[in-house]
Design a protein around this nucleic acid. Structure first.
Lengths: 70, 70
DNA sequence: ATGTGACTGCTAGTCCGTC
DNA sequence: GGACGGACTAGCAGTCACA
């Protein structure tokens, strides 16, 4: 599976676990609304700094966001 | 600790575990030698596609490359 | 065998929208 | 609420000469 899709799926899973919408989540953590959308759909190829930002925002480890890769 | 430095340190650790020099490693996996150098020194902010490439080249999981990040 | 600055092409990251 | 498009700037990918 494409790593971008896997990463996006994990972001979505953990965001939904927080009960927040993409918009609420984006606003709360100072991220662009459309960027969250793009990430979750696997259309983006984020840098590790962004990965770190999402991990902290979702309150999960970075490893959790790469769960299922391989 | 800066995630770029942590990532770089982990890459270096696992590369050295293979017994290969930066140059040998770079040649073997079709990566530029100076790029490996930049990564290991934490001067680069690679994308997850690159992270995936390094994980496969080093034969470790992606989580291993983020070991020690909080 | 590795560190470093500089460079070009392209894309990551951001902002405005519509459906 | 979320998908998707266009446009823009900052910064990454990839490479080189040189130390």
């Amino acid at each position: 599976m494409d790593i971008r899709k896997q990463f996006g799926a994990n972001v979505r899973k953990h965001r939904q676990a927080t009960g927040l919408s993409q918009e609420q989540f984006a606003l709360q953590h100072d991220i662009d609304r459309t960027y969250v959308s793009g990430i979750e759909r696997g259309k983006r190829n984020p840098t590790i700094v962004i990965v770190n930002k999402f991990a902290k925002a979702l309150d999960v480890s970075i490893a959790d966001l790469f769960d299922g890769c391989d």
